[in-house]
Simulated assay, not measured.
Amino acid sequence: MKEAKKQGGLNAEIQSRIGHQLRAMYDDVVRQGVPDRFVELIRRLDVPTPDAHLQNTGDQTTKNDGRE
């Protein structure tokens, strides 16, 4: 005698509601933009450090700033 499989998951209507709510939340986050402190941090990370050229010369005395 076979047991009937119990169907799990969410029906299409509930999935649709969740999808609409997630899109609304995501749109709100996107509209907020990037905070100024993150923009400044990204800008500073994009600027080469003064000792970056030493890494290419084979000099083993370069400072380890924790990014390796």
Rank of each mutant, 00 (worst) to 15 (best):
N64L: 00
E13Q: 00
T57C: 05
D28F: 10
L54H: 09
T61I: 07
R37M: 13
F38V: 09
D36H: 10
G58D: 04
P48T: 12
V29G: 07
Q32Y: 12
H20F: 11
A12V: 01
Q21D: 05
Q32P: 00
D65M: 13
G66Q: 02
H20P: 00
Q15N: 13
F38A: 07
I42E: 12
K63S: 06
T49S: 12
H53V: 14
L22V: 09
I18N: 05
T62F: 02
Q15H: 00
S16W: 00
Q60Y: 11
D27G: 15
T49A: 13
Q60K: 08
E40S: 10
D59I: 07
G66T: 03
G19Q: 04
L41P: 03
D27I: 13
V34W: 01
R67Q: 08
N64W: 01
D59A: 10
R44L: 02
I14T: 10
R23Q: 15
T61N: 12
I14C: 01
D36G: 12
A12T: 02
H53T: 14
Q55W: 14
R37D: 04
P50W: 13
V29C: 11
T62Y: 07
G19M: 04
H53N: 07
A52V: 04
Q55Y: 09
T49M: 12
D51A: 15
N64P: 03
R37H: 11
L45V: 04
A24M: 14
V30Q: 05
D51I: 11
M25E: 13
P48K: 01
A52W: 12
D46L: 06
H53C: 02
D59H: 06
G33P: 06
G58E: 09
R23I: 11
L54D: 08
N56W: 08
V29L: 13
D59T: 07
M25C: 13
D36F: 14
R67P: 03
R31T: 15
T57M: 03
A52L: 07
N64A: 00
G19T: 06
D27W: 04
T57W: 01
E68I: 05
L45I: 00
R43T: 14
E40R: 04
A52Q: 10
D46T: 08
I14H: 09
G66M: 05
D28K: 13
P35I: 05
T57S: 13
V47M: 08
N56G: 11
G58C: 11
K63G: 02
E13L: 02
S16F: 03
K63T: 14
Q32V: 15
Q15Y: 01
A12G: 03
T49V: 11
I18R: 05
V39F: 09
